[in-house]
Design a protein around this nucleic acid. Structure first.
Lengths: 214, 214
DNA sequence: GTCTATACACTGATAGAC
DNA sequence: GTCTATCAGTGTATAGAC
């Protein structure tokens, strides 16, 4: 344990505390839902007094809104691998890998997102109508281009995307069920590798793309 | 408006009121989550005074428990089509159809189930460990048999099941997102038919099963 | 079996000393 | 920027008249 060379600036204190709070909030909202997560509980998880949460985030809803927005950003960035790919095997394969990795590393975020959408997106409806819609249309166009170029079968691009989202996010959102069916044991590296390979194999084969992934 | 030929027996009154309450509860729990759904709100949806709910279901949790149990039954019954099928095209095709139909007809139930599992199954953990586990093992054995008989490719049966669950339930759990991406319009008969056909085509092709479904 | 009134606990949010 | 004390509002659940 070393002494800090200099005291943190107010800006740094704010950043650090916001990070602590957001981390605790994401975990707590995921586990208990918006209604079940109390400010007291989030404060306990963050290791701060409840009043401090209200200092950084005036209302519970503003805190929740920030959590959902952050998740949405991570989620959108996963699609960067999609762009600039030569074809579906590379592009969709990398996208599946990226989304499976998010399910593994940020399961809480995925659950908060799922819960928000299930409850008719009370705080991010505008994102669905603008950003997500544009993103979806763009990726559908890419898939359609691959189809036109004969690089994959003529499947419905929209429902292919939905299948990718559903399947990859399932490993986060229903992680508890999967763990229970795994004898109560969390997934090992090998389990995740098997899951990834299975998902990629079935979907890529399903759209007429040969692949040699082990 | 006709007069009832005879007054309802107490048993019939109980059945009818329980049905009203359970219907309202499923809808409300799905839309607002366990914490967000208040007994007052459920009572309003059911058209009954709040105190009556406590007469039929002593606590909020007992009402919720009953809702989840009922959903689980519907969900398990959908798998009847699985058994007695000659091969994967018939068995899995019918299973996908059945699960898509449940997503269409009982989206609220699917959401309550998803929410329950996401929150680590506080009330149906025992079902996951017993009934669901046995069900899953049984169906995995059927799939493995089809593989051994050369009727489909050698994919991992467990992950194939997860993909079926994820993909079909996605159309209920994320129905709001799908509707938003559909221009705010609910899915028509044609939309559902297209979704079903897409899901069946990709998955059945993905496991090496030819199919001629339109 | 129905329903009004109410008890009791808890939650989100704030005031104000430090 | 931190934290204790506290308020106003809401939620679950029940008592008791009908």
């Amino acid at each position: 344990m070393r002494a800090n060379p200099r005291p943190l600036s107010k800006r740094e204190i704010r950043q650090e505390n916001e990070r602590l709070i957001l981390e605790a909030a994401e975990k707590t909202f995921a586990e208990a839902g918006f209604g079940g997560a109390t400010m007291q509980l989030i404060a306990d998880v963050a290791g701060l007094p409840k009043a401090n949460l209200h200092y950084y985030f005036p209302t519970k809803e503003s805190l929740y809104r920030r959590v959902v927005q952050d998740i949405f950003q991570v989620w959108l960035q996963a699609a960067d691998v999609f762009d600039g790919a030569d074809g579906p095997e590379e592009g969709l394969g990398a996208y599946i890998d990226a989304k499976m990795e998010i399910s593994r590393r940020h399961p809480a975020g995925s659950k908060v997102w799922a819960s928000e959408v299930m409850h008719r997106a009370p705080v991010i409806q505008d994102y669905l109508e603008t950003t997500l819609k544009e993103w979806t249309n763009g990726r559908m166009a890419v898939i359609q281009r691959w189809i036109d170029e004969g690089k994959m079968d003529a499947v419905n691009p929209r429902h292919l995307l939905y299948m990718l989202w559903a399947t990859t996010q399932h490993y986060a959102d229903f992680g508890h069920q999967i763990e229970t069916l795994n004898g109560g044991e969390p997934y090992s590296d090998a389990d995740w590798a098997e899951a990834k390979a299975s998902v990629k194999h079935i979907i890529l084969t399903g759209i007429g793309v040969g692949q040699d992934n082990a």
